[in-house]
Design a protein around this nucleic acid. Structure first.
Lengths: 397, 397
DNA sequence: GGACTAATGGTCAGTGGTGAGCAAAAGTCT
DNA sequence: AGACTTTTGCTCACCACTGACCATTAGTCC
């Protein structure tokens, strides 16, 4: 999601734009026109007119009456999440997942396929398109029903244009105009870094104006930074790149990272490192997923490996907690599926080394569906951006 | 400065509020009405009316004609920085500096005095008031001329109320309503953490919408975090508290910090540590200031100590650069007066351990006046907040 | 049933910003 | 000198939002 600036001037500056109203209803902050009046401070008049517009546009529905608080009960408003659908693409290094969701990011159908990101944008995006057609057909929809497309890719992206920007692990993708590959859907295409996308998925429909870190532990380690409910990107768009932060090994060991540096966080505690250490410990595993499963089954060695990774990640997060003082940290990605042992290691390190003021109220959790957050986040990104543009159009009418 | 939210609705939502126009002129982004039209997108009509209001309020002045670009030359607009004055207070642990500045944060007069912050708010603020009266008299102004007061204090502050919040090194100050001590000035009083205040001073008149870290190395080490030109505070307002981030000592030594933890950044590389190490190395010094002076004079031992501190700070900053990807890092505080050797150590560590994408364009500098940035920042905070409130009033008329 | 209350709809004058159009001022370019 | 350009001032129709007012609806409370 792009940094949303305050629109001064122009059509979008209205005190209660259609997009804002929609967001209030979608997030459940508002259930009636009266709620919207209270939330936005706009006049009943304005709200009424806008809500009528949104109902006419089929984006809102009236849904019966609510509880009375002494007088006439409110007419409940509902977001019509079936007003359209979006394509959500979670592009990984070795696989891609494509989902069709409704406008509430509820997954209607999904399909995955192994790929090699290094095959380049042409081949990979053709495969994505094939999967999209397949999953659309599965749920009985056509390309014409797609309102927007959201794509998360494993590398930095110049968000406004949807072009990857010097991605280290996506050879051949630099500056490729990803949206152009979906021209035939005739709808907006939003592309962002997969971690940013996941972060959106974890904070839910944007709006919780909080400061959150979403840490993805997969093969590598990355972090989505949410400042006041919005994705923070930094100067070059590389904020949250915590995988190559230097970590001191207590035993003085040295591990060389794929980036060439020594003792990077992800070289010690990432999924690749976990697999390597599990094999070295004699566990019968061939993938990270298997290590995580062993830990989930209670295998002592696997448990200790995961917990150790958590501790290492926790030492880095402890520093970031002091610096960033987030409300919440959410763990996601493949390794996060291990759940409890990872969390235990992280909490151990964070609570030991962060300042009490910042750590006391800090919530550290694991994503409820680490394997889905990429798709859900991509869908949410597409929905949020789409509805904002839509709202401007609604106003223009 | 408080997190400035996007004002939807109400009087302040105008596309080009007086405060915004003023800021454009003050920062030099706009020099004429035409510039303001181009910058804000508002109509000529609106801009003209607003500028007239501001001129009537004596906040803007017309100042001759500018260069022609082919047609009629613009009438230049100037901010009238003599329309009032502000009090800027830089409250330290062992001393306080009070300055009177004009509305451009130009210092008209200043005076300092040793204090002990532990004497509590009553005694200390009485002393501040005495100094304020003195410096006002020095420059021929009266309390009635003061438009606003800005105060930086060495601890966390609940900004909206101006009350310190569990400050670890300000015994007796918790929840004390600092602004109430300046009631007789009958003007708004803004209180914030000294590091946040300094950060404001370093980015200049707010508006450079950039992401910046302002690192203060005094007795302790703290960091002001600027996100998109605004102070970032985090969940409990303790963001930027990097002094107690854990640092691995290469030689395995252990240093106990005043906070009780081991190997905190400021216990190894703060001013106190620098003094301790300088004395241990046999240098004839009694204060941090003297160590810094020796380094400035080219003393080899002092130089190496400062550079070493820089390296240690740099290892922490390297992690933060990866995570935060700032445009710029500015060093300030007493130790930063050492300049080159400190910077050399920091750059050495940062460029070695940060990701190239984030480090390449990163600017690391030393404040131009580390000893003044507290006062200038406090003045700027007061001015910015005051002019924003003023602008709302101007609109109400 | 009657009084009260909250949610909503509709009307209408008032206000503030927009954008177009006209005019004047004060330069540059040929 | 005359054409052109840019900046600024002024007027006016237009539009969106506000706030006041009145009316209706559909509940609760007594």
């Amino acid at each position: 999601m792009g940094r949303r600036t305050c629109h001064y001037g122009g059509v979008a500056s209205t005190s209660a734009s259609a997009g804002v109203l929609l967001r209030h209803v979608r997030t459940g902050r508002a259930r009636s026109r009266a709620d919207l009046v209270a939330l936005t401070g706009a006049s009943r008049n304005t709200i009424s007119a806008r809500v009528d517009q949104l109902i006419a546009a089929n984006l809102l529905e009236e849904g019966g009456r609510g509880w009375s608080t002494g007088g006439r009960p409110p007419t409940l408003l509902q977001f019509n999440s079936r007003a359209g659908c979006v394509l959500a693409v979670d592009l990984g290094v070795t696989s891609v997942d494509v989902a069709v969701t409704d406008l509430s990011a509820q997954i209607l159908g999904t399909v995955g396929h192994p790929i090699d990101i290094a095959d380049g944008p042409g081949a990979v995006l053709a495969e994505v398109d094939r999967l999209a057609q397949q999953v659309l057909a599965d749920v009985g929809l056509t390309p014409g029903d797609v309102c927007a497309i959201g794509i998360g890719v494993p590398g930095p992206v110049e968000f406004p244009t949807g072009r990857p920007s010097h991605p280290p692990i996506m050879p051949g993708w630099h500056d490729y105009p990803v949206p152009s590959a979906f021209g035939r859907y005739e709808c907006p295409v939003y592309v962002d870094n997969d971690v940013n996308v996941m972060a959106l998925g974890e904070i839910g429909v944007a709006g919780s104006s909080q400061d959150v870190l979403v840490v993805k532990v997969g093969t590598g380690i990355g972090c989505g930074v949410i400042v006041d409910g919005r994705v923070y990107r930094g100067a070059q768009g590389s904020a949250g790149d915590i995988g190559h932060i230097h970590v001191a090994q207590p035993d003085g060991r040295t591990v060389v990272c794929r980036c060439g540096q020594e003792n990077c966080l992800e070289a010690i505690a990432g999924g690749g490192a976990l697999l390597r250490d599990a094999i070295a410990a004699g566990l019968p595993v061939g993938t990270v997923r298997e290590v995580v499963r062993l830990a989930a089954e209670g295998n002592g060695v696997a448990l200790e490996l995961v917990r150790g990774a958590g501790r290492t990640i926790g030492t880095v997060l402890a520093s970031l907690v002091n610096f960033f003082n987030p409300h919440r940290i959410v763990m996601t990605g493949g390794v996060a599926q291990a759940g409890v042992p990872l969390l235990a290691g992280i909490r151990e390190a964070v609570y030991r080394r962060s300042m009490p003021l910042a750590a006391r109220a800090l919530e550290i959790t694991v994503s409820e569906a680490p394997d889905l957050s990429g798709r859900v986040g991509a869908a949410l990104m597409a929905i949020e951006e789409f509805l904002d543009e839509e709202s401007v159009q609604a106003l223009a009418r």
